[in-house]
């Protein structure tokens, strides 16, 4: 059941992304181009997503545990550190350059569009390289 739920989540999320326009870089960039060819559509994506998630979470997070898992696994970090702000700033720069974000590009991989595949390959390299570097630094700190 765990795996079926995860698979269904991927399908619902993917269809939502494809329908919304988040997988279309021209539309994403136009959302931010208020001074040019502005297209406010993506504001509706965020609005729709937030209203549903906000109301749904209010009910679900009151349950004692999820259906197919022992407990809810929520982020525990609280600090507003340099990684959070610097990383998010970098993400914004990359999103502005390419028009793709991870959630927007991944559901489009199945179209086999060459631009989507190019972006996702670079995304995977970026994530993997950062994870390895973080892990090496953590080990080094632990040794000291």
């Amino acid at each position: 059941m765990k795996f079926i739920s995860a698979f269904i989540t991927g399908i619902i999320f993917g269809i939502g992304i494809l329908m919304s326009g988040m997988a279309n870089p021209a539309k994403v960039i136009n959302f931010f181009d208020v001074a040019g060819t502005w297209d406010p559509s993506l504001g509706f994506v965020m609005g729709g997503g937030l209203v549903v998630a906000f109301i749904g979470y209010r009910y679900i997070l009151k349950l004692p545990n999820p259906l197919f898992n022992l407990k809810f696994q929520l982020p525990t970090k609280k600090s507003l550190d340099i990684n959070l702000i610097g990383g998010s700033a970098l993400f914004g720069i990359g999103w502005g350059i390419s028009g793709f974000c991870p959630g927007g590009a991944l559901p489009a991989v199945g179209t086999l569009n060459a631009d989507v595949l190019t972006f996702c390959a670079a995304l995977v390299v970026g994530i993997y390289a950062t994870k390895i570097t973080q892990n090496m630094l953590r080990k080094k700190t632990n040794l000291n």
Partner: peptide
């Protein structure tokens, strides 16, 4: 876009509800 966003929200609460 609103409908797509609502589906993204639905996926978000579905994953929390089933797998946490």
């Amino acid at each position: 876009s609103l409908g797509g966003g609502a589906l993204i929200g639905l996926a978000t609460i579905f994953l929390m509800w089933t797998l946490g």
